[in-house]
Design a protein around this nucleic acid. Structure first.
Lengths: 240, 240
DNA sequence: CGACTCGCATACCACGAGTACGTACCCAAA
DNA sequence: TTTGGGTACGTACTCGTGGTATGCGAGTCG
């Protein structure tokens, strides 16, 4: 295979860059794209580097020049899929002001995005195992998780109360897990539309519950505990 | 290595079984136990079959006699870890009658169980990637997930209303994801006790919200949707 | 007590991740 | 323009690992 000239001339690219940089960036992008396809279709473990470099029309020398190994390549794919997903969700939430409405909008976007096979396979399914939970959460923290955390914060502080930041993080993690699992429920169902509606209703019900507590003056503060909540609810139940 | 006699005489075992069956069962158990240790410590991908058979004092011939391959061995470990965990949780929930109290009890047990490194690594982290989400959920359905589903059902139907079974499943899946993620939050935190308390409070808050809706006569039925919930809440907010 | 089979060991193969090293091409400087 | 250097790959190899084929001796049963 002659290497005199790349088979595909590099896309316009950055004008301020030299030919070599453009060629190099082009092959790197191609590698990531091919890897995303194969990882999505067959999973991380069942995808060989030979298959990836063959699809990208290069050899392992090129791959190992750009990435330190298979895992590093996966990380690049992971970040690409994840950042584009997060961007799409944030796009759809722009302009919605009411916290509860915003939460539901974000939920719908998340459910839509999470059904993309690339996100399911690469981020949800293989991500934790390949990167390890440490790096996995670390990366999530700055994209999809950040969106959830933002929503949670606005919802919890909607009543004007201020909530402990650690508690916001806890809630965000709980909701993120709930949403990920919900996404799986939707994309794994035979009737995805009906499943999506059920999930919306369920999350809506939970959010409505939180809102209902806010209506009745029950708030989260530093002193709130599971036990105190039960007592408060009991008292409210007596008088109501 | 002589194979005249097993290094360790088999545990008492079933009296009605022949020696060969006892020896065989013994080595199989040993394989699963050693595999559980190594999988937990190093993860599935980084654990070689050579290491496992060395730890079990046998060879690959024995392993492939009992299991069809590495994945099948993992499944055996998975089922062992998972079933024992589910049993432990159900044990602690025995005798608690009040649905809300039962839910909180189950939550505490789940948080405790989920912190076991074997459960975190094998079930939560490696499980989905190794088994695939299909088989993963399929297996969960019959153990830890079943516990969650049971709790969810009793809580949702606590007010005397009957809820669509599909909706129970949706809720269960959402809560299961939430609890798994919460478990990670707890076990990954520096101060696990404080983290566990935050999780309890957060879940308690969500449950209290649902209970609050029940108090105010808002229930889930076939016609409930996210939109209708918002309208109902709005009306209640006006009069309250 | 003899044949048969089960439980396991041994030896081997195929494949895939990672490495060492060679080389052609691009770019900057002279 | 030429040339030296370094970048961006290609080639050829190693080694660890999952899986397989086959042999063999101890249990088991007639």
């Amino acid at each position: 295979m002659s290497k005199l000239v790349p088979k595909v001339p590099p896309l316009p690219g950055v004008p301020g860059a030299t030919k070599r940089q453009q060629y190099s960036a082009s092959t790197k992008r191609t590698l990531v794209e091919v890897a995303e396809e194969l990882f999505t279709a067959n999973g991380y473990a069942s995808t060989s580097l030979d298959a990836i470099v063959a699809g990208a029309q290069v050899t392992k020398g090129a791959l190992y020049h750009h990435f330190s190994g298979k895992q590093a390549l996966f990380e690049a794919v992971f970040e690409k899929v994840e950042s584009s997903t997060a961007r799409a969700i944030q796009q759809e939430m722009k302009g919605v002001k009411d916290p509860w409405e915003k939460a539901l909008t974000g939920l719908r976007s998340f459910l839509a995005a999470v059904q993309a096979s690339s996100y399911r396979r690469i981020v949800i399914q293989d991500g934790p195992a390949v990167l390890g939970y440490e790096r996995y959460r670390e990366k999530e923290e700055r994209s999809a998780f950040a969106v959830v955390q933002d929503i949670v914060r606005t919802v919890l502080t909607a009543g004007g109360h201020d909530v402990d930041e650690a508690m916001v993080g806890t809630f965000a993690q709980i909701f993120f897990g709930a949403l990920s699992s919900a996404g799986e429920a939707v994309s794994g169902a035979t009737d995805t539309t009906a499943a999506a509606e059920r999930v919306e209703t369920a999350i809506g019900f939970i959010l409505a519950g939180i809102q209902s507590l806010a209506d009745r003056g029950v708030a989260l503060d530093g002193e709130t505990s599971a036990g105190s909540l039960r007592r408060t609810l009991g008292a409210l139940g007596q008088e109501g």
